[in-house]
Each structure stands twice: as structure tokens, then as C-alpha cells.
Computed example of a mutant assay.
Amino acid sequence: MTVWNQPKENSIDALLHGMQFADGVEFDLRLSSDGDFVVYHNELVPGEGPKSERSIERMGTDELRSHGIVTFDGLLSQRPFTDAWQAGGKTANIEFKVPHPAAQIDDVDGYLRAMMRLLEEKLGPFDLPDRSALIYSFSPRIGPVAKSVGFEFPVTRLSPYLRPWGSKPIRRLVGTPNFILSTVTGLIKQHRKEGMPALAMALQYLQGWERFVHLGTPMAIRGGGLERLNRARAGMGLHVWPAPLELEASMLEAGFSLISDNMDPRVVSLPDGGARWSRPASQPLDEEWRERLDTAADSERADLIKEAGESLPTWSELGVSRRRGIVVEQGRRMFWTGSEDKWAAEAEGGLPWGSPRLTGHRGAGDTD
């Protein structure tokens, strides 16, 4: 396989790669001072000078573009990206970023409302399939604001709550009390009460010693802890980050949607020896192909994966009975509520939120 150079996060190349290589992408949106979207994670552009002058929200779109920052319009002009998104089975998880305090934007609700209206305007012409976009935010205001404006896209909060500025260690430190006080069961109940179709949470809620710091019975990615989790969420989507390669197969089998930084197409085998298939939702393997890939020698897998990608039908190309078979198996295994007919009908309108997906973090992985 040719050399792969990981593209810069949130770049056009990264987002194209993630949308084509995986089941979709996660990326960040901010508003420029002239009220347009840019695709950027950090709250400030690099450099010297006052933070107020480097705040994204205080800078115009043209100036931000001169710093190499991608506009949302630039991304939407890429037909390979939008065609894949419109075809069905691919999901874009869009994180709404709120401004750094130096931007001096105190009306967070107004800022979120402006983002919601603009996103509806930008995406309206594309007539996206159901359940092909999910809006994230760390802001606890995302749900109430979405409800107040009748926002047409589903939203969810990222947990634990992290403030929108500061270094990674400081953000995590400040977020520790929220992590300790928010149990998985409590989050499920809160999200369901607010009508959110999915959770989005750090892996530490489910794996490692950190999951034991909460009150109540811990959840897990295997065994009894997994059964408790799936019975509690009952078909609600669960988006988890990070997604280490050594846990990828277990997490997908558990029914989680992964936000992965491992988008290297040269990785064809997982640490446990099994083959890696990066499109479990948008181009599901059948039993024959899964066996072929898992039993192949490591040296043969790249060619076989390429062949599978060229021959297997995508989610939108699958027949009704095949789609039904997939969601019925998932629904039974993960204790979804409702009937098999309900799950099958939902699948005809778009991949159910409870179905596991593999998405590229900031397109092709974090490079910050």
C-alpha cells in the first residue's frame, strides 16, 4: 500500500478521507465575526498578541481563510463529501463550539440560535437522509435552545462537561467534578427527558478504574456491565471517544458508535489479530466476507479489503430484507425497545441511532 500522510485535522483532505474511509466524520464548527461557519477546533488562531484579536469569533471569514482555516461552504462544495453523505449510511457528527471569553460574546443562547439557523440554511438544499447528522456541544444549553427554536437536527451534550477554553490538562481537571457526579444511568435519564436520541461520552465512563468513582452500579463494554448499559439505553445511540484499536472490535460489538483517531488505511489488522473493517454501518460485511477477512494472512488483507470495498453494497444499496436482518439482530442483542417491525421501518428511513458506527475524529484523526 502507498504511503499515507495523515492530513491536518478539520481540513478538506481530512474530512474527505474520513467520509470515504469510515462511516462518517466528526468535525467542529464556529462562527466568524461576519456570521459564517468555519471548520475549526481551537478557540484562538496560533500566534502572538491579545487573545481578543485571535478569537475566531472576532475575525472575519476572509482573514480566517488566510490562516488556512476551512469554511463550511468550502466543505459543502466538495461533491465526493456531499454525495457520500446524501447516499445514506454515513453520519456527520457536528460539534458546535462556543466562544472563548476573550471574544466577549456573553449571549451563549443567542450564539447557539444563530448557529442552528445557519446550519438549517446551509444543509436544507441537500435533503439529507434521516439520522445522517447529529449536533454535539459541551454547552448544557444545547438542548433547551434547540427546543426553543424547533431545530430540525437532533442534538446531544458531550459528557463530561468541559469548559470551552484552556489547555487539555486544565480542561480535564476542571471537568473532573462533573465526571464524578454524572453517572451513566443519570445521563441516560437526562438525555431521554430532553428528547436526545444519543449519548456522547468519554470512554472513562465505561472502561478503566475511573468508571468506579461514580455512585451506583458501574457500566462496562463487556459482560454484566454491558448488559446493564444496553438495557438502560434501550436503543439510544452511544457515541464514545477515544476508540483505541485494541478495544475497537469489542466496542463495536457492544453497540457503540466510535469517534476514532485511527484513520490510517494501512491498518488492516487489529491488535487481537482480526481484520479491521472501517465501514461497519455504511457498508456492512456479510458473514462470508467477515470470515474471508479474518482467516486471511495479514499480507493478504489489504487487497481483500480493497476488493470488499469495491464489491459489497452500501447501506443504501442493501435490499429491504438485508437491512431488516441487520437491525433485528442488533435490536435483539442490544435490548432495543419496540417491535422488530418498528426497527425495520426505522431502518428504511435511515440507519437507527442505536446501530454502531465508526467515525473519523476531525476527519482523519486529531493532529492538534
Rank of each mutant, 00 (worst) to 15 (best):
I142G: 04
P140Q: 10
A146T: 05
G166T: 11
I170M: 13
F138Q: 06
S139I: 07
P140S: 04
P160G: 06
F138N: 04
A146K: 04
L162W: 13
K168H: 10
V145H: 03
W165V: 00
F153W: 15
K147Y: 03
F138S: 03
P144I: 00
I170L: 15
I170N: 09
Y161R: 14
S137C: 15
S148C: 01
R163A: 04
R171G: 05
R157W: 05
Y161C: 00
S159E: 13
Y136V: 00
S137T: 03
V149D: 07
G143S: 14
F153D: 05
Y161D: 01
P144Y: 06
P154R: 07
P140I: 06
V155H: 10
T156Q: 06
R157F: 03
R141K: 14
P140Y: 10
V149Y: 11
S148E: 14
R141Y: 10
W165Y: 15
R157M: 13
P164I: 05
P160N: 11
S159D: 13
P169I: 09
T156G: 04
P140M: 05
K147L: 00
V149R: 06
Y161W: 14
P169N: 11
S159R: 12
S137D: 07
P154H: 09
V145E: 02
R157A: 05
L158N: 04
P140L: 05
T156F: 08
T156L: 07
L158P: 08
K168S: 09
P154W: 12
P160D: 08
G166H: 12
L162S: 02
S167F: 09
G150S: 04
P164W: 09
R141A: 11
